[in-house]
């Protein structure tokens, strides 16, 4: 009797544990599986492949060497080969290309973090800039980067810069925006009473900034940096498209699209999102390490 009750207790505890777990992991996995199933069916329908069928590979349509819509396992294999099938110094290695892109993205991200913070500081402290500069910052984001990227490359090439720097600038032109907006909000987040308190100490503007505004802005800065990192990687890839670059994920995408190599295209895209995921994840870890600065729930 008591065992049965204890059993129910255990059962209930176990059940209570499931929903949390399923909501976090199970639900996204189910959705992913559904998407992969639809994709696989589509790949079967789109790619007729008599050659593979003759070789006895099943399902034959999934392993077409020049597929229109590559099947999920085919993409997985191509990605794996791209990442680990060649030495990292080889121009066929996707790790090599990801490293080239990441280098530019990190440079752009650094530029964006500094520029975005500096702009926000100026906007918060100078009323004229709040009215005069902020609208242009917003307008700057409505211009498609695909249009501005070639201009940046040409203009900077004229000034004698090529390679990493133009890509970093294009990357930064996207990534500074969330930093500026986040920091504007963050630097303005201290309550009046906090500012009054520092006034009673006769604190200088610089002291108010470092003792109050800056630490108050950190909880706003960290999420902004995560968005900026994702944009920096997008920016670096776009920056590689018009430069005629030989290396980088953007260059790889361009070659793939010119030559109709759909498989390479998908593999490169997956590596691009993995790169972005890792970089953003690293920032999330940094955010966790600073729990004092998280916004109150």
């Amino acid at each position: 009797m008591s065992e049965a009750i204890a059993g129910i207790g255990v059962f209930r505890t176990a059940r209570a544990g499931v929903p949390q777990w399923s909501r976090r992991i199970l639900a996204p996995v189910v959705i992913l599986c559904a998407l992969l199933a639809i994709w696989s069916i589509a790949a079967t329908l789109v790619n007729p492949s008599p050659a593979a069928a003759a070789a006895g590979i099943w399902p034959s349509n999934w392993w077409n060497p020049r597929p229109t819509l590559p099947s999920p396992p085919q993409i997985a294999v191509a990605t794996w080969t791209g990442l680990f099938g060649y030495p990292v110094t080889s121009p066929r290695s996707l790790i090599y290309h990801a490293a080239v892109t990441l280098e530019a993205a990190l440079a752009g991200f650094g530029l964006a973090a500094v520029l975005g913070t500096a702009l926000a500081t100026a906007i918060v402290h100078v009323r004229l800039l709040d009215r005069g500069l902020l609208p242009w910052v917003i307008v700057s984001q409505s211009i498609p980067v695909l249009a501005t990227a070639p201009m940046v490359v040409v203009a900077m090439g004229y000034m004698g810069f090529s390679g990493l720097l133009p890509k970093a600038v294009i990357s930064a032109s996207l990534a500074f925006f969330p930093v500026t907006i986040g920091m504007c909000k963050g630097l303005r987040s201290p309550q009046t009473v906090q500012l009054d308190l520092l006034r009673t100490y006769n604190a200088s503007g610089r002291q108010v900034f470092w003792a109050l505004r800056w630490p108050s802005a950190i909880p706003y800065l960290l999420p902004a940096l995560k968005i900026a990192m994702a944009l920096a990687i997008t920016g670096a890839i776009v920056g590689e498209l018009p430069t005629g670059a030989q290396a980088g994920l953007g260059a790889r995408l361009l070659i793939a699209s010119y030559n109709g190599l759909m498989l390479l295209m998908w593999a490169t895209l997956i590596v691009a999102s993995l790169t972005a995921g890792l970089a953003v994840g690293a920032l999330a870890l940094l955010e966790r390490a600073l729990p004092r600065f998280r916004l109150p729930a």
């Binding site: 009473v193 308190l197 009673t200 100490y201 006769n202 604190a203 003792a211 109050l212 600065f293 109150p296």
Partner: peptide, 30 residues
């Protein structure tokens, strides 16, 4: 300017990222 008074507000107005001691040290840092 001489910091000749201490002001206590309606709310404690403590900085959440500072410990109690560090909060008390704030004016001394200034």
């Amino acid at each position: 300017g001489d910091r000749s008074y201490g002001y206590v507000f309606q709310t404690p107005a403590l900085q959440p990222w500072r410990t109690a001691l560090a909060n008390v040290m704030l004016p001394l840092e200034i």
